[in-house]
């Protein structure tokens, strides 16, 4: 553990090439079926030793608080740390390039064979499962959160705004973030 911390700290001063930034994030993007964050930890902390466990935890929290997928935000911060703006762009490009190629292949297959009845039946099943996947993710995260009254109130309001009133997502966020922060601060003071 001691060794890992010092290794991570010293490597921060080393120069990391654009090539290795691109490769590292390509690997994270391509391996990240389901849980990208777990792979990011493995590659950034265990394999490359660019970050210590603690630094990685900070990186993940900041990446999750900001809008956009947390892994995209993390790639930008890592790239920026080693190589500035161009490094940030390189990291994001590495993260997206491989998965996008795979996605294009799937899209071509869908365009070509999507009308066949059996393919439609298979995709119909996958689609039903994908809806369940999102429900399940909500259940999983809500269980971890152990919500208080304020959290539940904000959640219900945001849900109604999106599902029933079809408000623009920016409006929902602009209204709910201040409310949620005030409620969280009040609960903390108690």
């Amino acid at each position: 553990m001691q060794e890992r911390v010092s290794a991570a700290a010293s490597s921060a001063q080393e120069t990391v090439s654009y090539g290795s930034i691109f490769l590292v994030f390509s690997k994270i993007g391509l391996c990240g079926f389901g849980g990208v964050a777990a792979w990011a930890h493995r590659v950034l902390v265990d394999e490359r030793r660019w970050y210590s466990d603690r630094e990685y935890a900070d990186l993940l929290s900041i990446g999750s608080v900001l809008p956009g997928p947390n892994i995209c935000n993390m790639s930008i911060m890592v790239g920026d740390r080693f190589r500035g703006p161009l490094g940030a762009a390189t990291a994001l490009a590495g993260l997206l390039a491989g998965p996008l190629l795979i996605l294009v292949c799937l899209a071509l297959l869908y365009d070509r064979y999507g009308d066949l009845p059996v393919v439609q039946a298979v995709i119909g099943g996958v689609t039903a499962a994908a809806a369940g996947l999102v429900f399940g993710t909500v259940i999983k995260l809500a269980r971890r959160l152990r919500p208080r009254f304020g959290n539940i109130l904000v959640g219900v309001l945001a849900f109604l705004g999106a599902a029933m009133l079809h408000l623009h997502v920016l409006l929902i966020v602009a209204l709910m973030v201040p409310l949620s922060l005030v409620l969280a601060l009040r609960e903390r003071q108690r």
């Binding site: 900041i62 608080v65 959160l145 904000v154 959640g155 945001a158 849900f159 969280a184």
Partner: peptide, 28 residues
């Protein structure tokens, strides 16, 4: 950061629940 995280968390969860509802209506 911790405060911000707990405060923000219900918003993506609620929006994702709305996503799931829309997806289920389209898929099931």
């Amino acid at each position: 950061l911790k405060l911000l995280q707990t405060a923000l968390m219900p918003i993506p969860l609620a929006l994702m629940a709305a996503s799931a509802l829309i997806m289920a209506q389209a898929a099931d």
